[in-house]
Amino acid sequence: MNLEVKEPIDLVRLSLGEKIYIKMRGDRELRGTLHAFDQHLNIVLSNVEEVLTVIEIDEETNEEIMKTTRRNFEMLYIRGDGIIAIAPPKRF
């Protein structure tokens, strides 16, 4: 396998089998192990944790309260059109 990063999608290709972070539309974030992707960024992840962030405004104090809901999935197909950004695992 070619280890060069020439095109953006190469970054995704080199993350196969590794834990990645995905930012999705609708204030959703996913973390899981990348198993497959295609040119549309349709993706299959395993051991996924989804974090959904909702901002609620307290009616009395007008304070913004961040609420997070977490869900876990064993194996998940994600349609590419909802994806905003993908971050590979940190390499040191």
Partner: peptide, 24 residues
């Protein structure tokens, strides 16, 4: 569709990975 929850025991992750590399 946003997500499809897949049955984990039916997925060959090794095969998926190889297919993804080939597809790319």
């Amino acid at each position: 569709i946003r997500y499809v929850l897949l049955p984990q025991d039916q997925i060959d992750t090794q095969l998926l990975k190889e297919s993804a590399i080939k597809e790319a």
